[in-house]
Design a protein around this nucleic acid. Structure first.
Lengths: 133, 133
DNA sequence: CTATTTGTGAGAATATTACTCTTAATAGCG
DNA sequence: CGCTATTAAGAGTAATATTCTCACAAATAG
């Protein structure tokens, strides 16, 4: 179906919330969940890859929470999407040549590659401040 | 995960087979299935939307089968992909505004729209003869 | 120590994808 | 005309991925 999943949708929504409320030191995942209408335990999971990817910074305990690890201008939308959804790959063969049993005579491989590059270019050209406009 | 499904993969493969074997009047789905290594009953189902969309022409009975309904140069890859996978929509909000509960303040909508347009442009610029190169 | 907040693992519910089996139409032949 | 072989069409089922929940563990400020 070639569509963003809830993981991407929710994750982006949460990150945008952090961009807009970046003044405050740290924001709890519970807050984000309430304000952005995202199931809390699910959202909690989504932060794991964002932290691993160096996009988000988290601390536990009282007055802990999450915040952007870098300036929003320095984080591209592509980066966030790939952290949440895995590497962009419109077709499996773009990730792993072995996945295509007809690679040599495929014909589609190059088309997908070109389409994906066009899409990636757009997502890479936007940073997190672009989302608040 | 934002990825093509087997429906798109198999369907495109089948259509390409028709482009390459267009000389013969009609080709049975069983033939395509054997030659392109696609589960037959599943492939059968994929032809329904292709026929409805006016991409493929089918007749039942002895010496029946399927063939392209138009010249391959006049069929774009986008058309085939959309017949098989449904309309291109990287996010649900691009299909139906009501799907987004935060539309007014979304910020992502325009980004997805732009990314999708870039991708669609590539897929629209390719026709079926491009797949045989 | 205690209240608070993130982290983790197992797994249930739901949606999507992939596949199979049965039914209907068609052409050709006797 | 009616039977039969052949082929597409449609209904129904199984497998897989996604989404979400729950229970508990680990860290931290005060």
């Amino acid at each position: 179906m070639i569509r963003l999943t809830k993981a991407g949708e929710y994750g982006l929504r949460a990150v945008r919330y952090l961009v807009e409320n970046g003044d405050e030191a740290r924001i709890s995942i519970g807050d984000i969940s309430t304000n952005k209408n995202i199931p809390e335990p699910f959202l909690r999971k989504l932060f794991k890859p964002l932290v691993q990817q160096g996009i988000i910074n988290s601390t536990r305990g009282v007055s802990g929470g999450v915040r952007l690890a870098r300036q929003p201008e320095e984080i591209t939308v592509l980066e966030v999407v790939e952290a949440l959804e895995g590497p962009l790959a419109l077709n499996e063969c773009l990730l792993d040549d072995a996945a295509c049993e007809f690679l040599a005579e495929c014909g589609m491989h190059d088309v997908w590659e070109e389409a994906q590059a066009a899409m990636a270019k757009v997502l890479r050209s936007k940073n997190l401040t672009d989302l608040t406009k």
